[in-house]
Every structure is written in structure tokens, then in C-alpha cells.
Amino acid sequence: MNRRAFLSWGTAGMVSLSSAVAVSMGAVARFLMPSVFYEPPQTFKIGKPGDYAFGVPTFLVDEKIFVFHDRDRGFSVASAVCTHLGCTVAHFQSDQKFHCPCHGSVFAADGSVVHGPAPKPLNWFEVILARDGQLQVDKDKIVPATYRLMV
């Protein structure tokens, strides 16, 4: 084998080897990314509009959302997950604000950050009236804080 053949075969070999390794690493990464998530669905129904009182927001524990029902402006749904590190915020009636227990972030009534390390306002989720007359929330659809559903 001469020098030219050695170098070209060697290069071809190294290229195929490194591409094989790269592809395998990609496959490993993809393998570790689950194809199916056994997690609660992002879209769910939360009952009839009449179930929710006016004024005081209702906190749904499992879904981690606040459901607001305003007499004049209708329904809106806020996330209870702090945008800082994922702790569950509480809504204080006394000052109409959301308080995070972990690092002291405070969010105003419209979800905007008043104080603390949270980098983003709280999310508001789309809420619609489903065919069966129940309210339906979609956590994948983020809406502006001004979004309202009139029923």
C-alpha cells in the first residue's frame, strides 16, 4: 500500500468511524428522550361555569391553576407555577397578589412581576366552553393576561 492509498483509506476510515460515533451518540440522546409521557394531559375540563363563585379565585390543586370568575368580564385562568423555579404560588386575598414561597417572588393581579427573582410574568391559559357545557383549559395555549371568556 502506498502513501496516497494509506492516507485516503485512513481518512475514509476516520470519517466513517467518527460519523458512526456521532450517529450513535445522537441515537442514545434520542433514546433517553421519552416518546410517550405518562403525565396528566395539558388539555382538561374543569366543570361547569356555574361551579365557580364570583370574585375569589378558585385554586385547582392537581392542575395547579387559579380560575378567576369576574361578574362583568368572565373567566380567566392563571398558572400557579412560579416562573422562577417552579414552586406553587399562593394568591393572597389581602393584597390581591400572588406570592411564591420559595424565593419571595410577588406577582400582581395581572400576573406581572412586582418583586423578586421571577424573570417572567405568570402564564395565563386559554379557557373555552366545551360542547358539553364544561369549561376546558389548554395549558399549551398561552394567552395574554387580558384574555377573558364570557359565558
Binding site: 406553587t88 420559595c102 424565593h103
Partner: peptide
């Protein structure tokens, strides 16, 4: 209980220095 965050919620002690920094700026 995923629904109830203890107050305060703290990371393991050797990461609390990190959490202290994070409470000022996450990034």
C-alpha cells in the same frame, strides 16, 4: 405533594449557596 409547596422550599444544603444566588438572579 406536587400541589403544596413547603414554605420555604429549600434545595439540599450544599446547593443552598447556589439557591441563595438564584434568589437574586436565576441565570
Amino acid at each position: 405533594n406536587p400541589a403544596k409547596t413547603p414554605n420555604p422550599a429549600k434545595a439540599p444544603w450544599y446547593f443552598l449557596g447556589l439557591q441563595e444566588l438564584v434568589s437574586h438572579s436565576a441565570l
